[in-house]
Design a protein around this nucleic acid. Structure first.
Length: 220
DNA sequence: GCGACAG
DNA sequence: ATCTTGTCGC
């Protein structure tokens, strides 16, 4: 599918932060307009100076695998808190360009608007592809939350410094907590609903994301 | 100055 | 993220 080229990727920290300020204005939080038929999990792994990104397309809500796409690239940008999009974004962008089918919602490993600048990896990628995206992470980057009750699928809000709700802390079946937030073209409610529908007892992460995580490690 | 801090 | 075996628990 098509990806907008709104900026360069060979930037430094300062340029990256400026780009974030521009892109954050384009982030739209609203309910998903159409029926969801295909969700796609995206995750990356690293091997020396290489990055491998993987996309797993699943039928929704059945979660049967429809397709798996991978791409390998070089890591140019270092890992800097809050700038993950500049480390993984270019490769993920090329990965998405290889996807043939029409994906209705993406789930990315990282945060959406639950980010100090309100533009985490999921929001950033969402703006470039103009499709609904959800950010899903195993730890919190920004915001405050209270511990969700200890039963599966219970959740609490993640709030920013002004008390604005920016995401959910969601309990999985393994007594762990994952942090989800809207990326782009989706709202808090749909983010929670779709994520919960993608969670199965066997895995700590939403199924499409778990599968992307596993597959990003095995090279082919 | 100290601590917090996606992958 | 990555370096890493067995092991405890549902």
């Amino acid at each position: 599918m098509e990806v907008k080229k709104l900026h360069r990727w060979d930037v430094d920290k300062d340029e990256g932060e400026k780009i974030q300020e521009q892109l954050r204005k384009k982030v739209i939080i609203k309910p998903i307009p159409k029926k969801i038929n295909i969700v796609c999990g995206i995750d990356s792994s690293y091997k020396e100076d290489e990055i491998i990104s993987c996309a797993v397309l699943c039928k929704y809500p059945e979660l049967e695998i429809i397709d798996i796409v991978k791409i390998k690239g070089k890591t140019n940008f270092p890992y800097i808190k809050g700038l993950l999009a500049f480390r993984e974004g270019e490769n993920i962008t090329k990965l998405i360009e290889k996807i043939e089918k029409d994906v209705d919602c993406f789930i990315l490993n990282g945060h959406g608007i639950a980010h100090p600048k309100k533009i985490g990896l999921a929001s950033h990628i969402g703006v470039l592809i103009e499709k609904p995206t959800i950010g899903c992470a195993k730890s919190l980057l920004y915001g405050n939350y209270s511990e969700p009750p200890s039963f599966p699928l219970s959740s609490t809000f993640i709030k920013d410094e002004e008390g604005e709700i920016i995401g959910h802390a969601l309990r999985n079946y393994n007594n762990g907590i994952i942090f989800i937030s809207p990326g782009h073209l989706i709202d808090l409610k749909d983010t929670l609903t779709i994520t919960i529908n993608c969670i199965k007892k066997e895995y700590s992460l939403p199924v499409p994301l778990y599968l992307a995580h596993i597959n990003s490690k095995s090279a082919d």
